[in-house]
Write a protein that binds this DNA or RNA. Structure first.
Lengths: 231, 231
DNA sequence: GTCTATAGACCGATAGAC
DNA sequence: GTCTATCGGTCTATAGAC
């Protein structure tokens, strides 16, 4: 376990001339978005405790104290990242539910399929996927846990009341989603070449949606995987 | 976010007389088990990075350097905790699969139900549940991630080859399991009184197995939920 | 709006005694 | 088998300048 050099997930290009970048002045709101985007990636990869505000700052191309200055505390920053992920998820679902229904033989199944596809699309963003999963395992933190519970229940209610899903459809939909989460989080596609069972399992789990996943996985977003400072 | 006093999840009773406990000398193997049990809880609640070797030590009733001495590094300790959780899971499943099958109308379904019940029983131990989930979100750590992938694939192969499950049964079984994980991790039963949707969702998700879960949840194992140092 | 400098707290690991 | 003491490193957050 030695000290690690940080690979910077730079965002603000600023065409480095070689020296230290004086960072151009941009509106606070815009900078906020940059920081939140960077934080989503860093928190996702290192976990809440494992991530440092300095890693977030480097990924956003600014100084560490500025990150803190803008969000008050690291905890606050994480909460905003989480809220953002939940919001994107809920908005995405709501849009699809509001679409005009096709009157086919299996209306509910069709809607579930479209929602499922949208979900997979969303969690291909590893920052979103892992921020959500981070929140799930923070159940006993009063504030993060409460947000996770509230978010999950909001999805449940949406499926029940707005989508009109019966209980079994809801269970299957949510269960499949949690399986997607896990298989993507552990990076099962990474070992397709080493173990044929990996691809087989992915194929069964994702069914039609596998090609979508594989396309995005290849392009890959992620930090390095330094042995230090995981979670 | 102020400094927090640690609630000690003491294990070695040692009937405190008020002064510092001189900790009785016990065989290394036994002490190992105590530390691993304590570490399972602490890592589960705080995450790999969030947990400190001192918290583990306090929970086990010994000194911090002794924890490090016995496992070399914190990373090593976590790996042993994870290996132990996986081992318990795999052993438990294998025992059930080896049981004589009842020749009913739905042999596969019966076996799946028994495995599911055993799984719920296992993850009622929040240490095991959260250690596993911690491993899932550590996919890009070379060593932890590899263990998570290998463990998941071993379960998959067991269901396919030893239990003889067809693909759809495997998917449903694993998906249900991941949903159990999530709902227990976020502590949904904690808000049964505040929101009827919580109990409804739990009922649909766990079906017959809900009463088992609720019994154990009430008894509750866990650290406190200090606002500091989460995940 | 952004930085440098740094205080203050914490943590993992080592050394060495009993 | 177990502890005390402590080093060296790291991290969040604050102060204050530009």
């Amino acid at each position: 376990m030695t000290t690690t050099s940080e690979p910077e997930t730079s965002a603000t290009g600023a065409a480095s001339t070689g020296a230290a970048q004086p960072t151009e002045r941009i509106p606070a709101a815009e900078r906020r978005e940059q920081i939140l985007a960077a934080a989503s990636v860093v928190f996702g990869e290192r976990g809440y405790s494992g991530a440092t505000t300095d890693q977030v700052a480097k990924a956003a191309g600014i100084s560490q104290p500025y990150v803190v200055r803008m969000f008050g505390t690291k905890e606050n920053l994480f909460l905003e990242v989480l809220a953002r992920a939940l919001e994107r998820l809920i908005t995405s679902f709501r849009l699809i539910i509001a679409e005009p229904r096709e009157h086919g033989p299996d209306e509910v199944g069709d809607l579930a399929a479209r929602l499922g596809a949208a979900y997979v699309d969303l969690i291909e963003d590893r920052g979103i996927l892992l921020s959500l999963m981070q929140a799930f395992i923070s159940g006993n933190n009063p504030v993060v846990g409460a947000k996770a519970r509230a978010g999950f229940l909001e999805i449940y209610r949406m499926l029940r009341d707005e989508a009109g899903f019966p209980p079994d459809t809801i269970r299957e939909f949510l269960a499949d989603g949690m399986l997607f989460n896990t298989l993507l989080a552990i990076r099962l596609p990474d070992i397709f070449d080493d173990d044929p069972a990996a691809e087989e399992l992915m194929r069964y789990a994702f069914r039609g949606k596998l090609d979508v996943v594989l396309g995005a996985t290849a392009a890959g977003n992620a930090l390095d995987s330094s042995p230090k400072d995981r979670t």
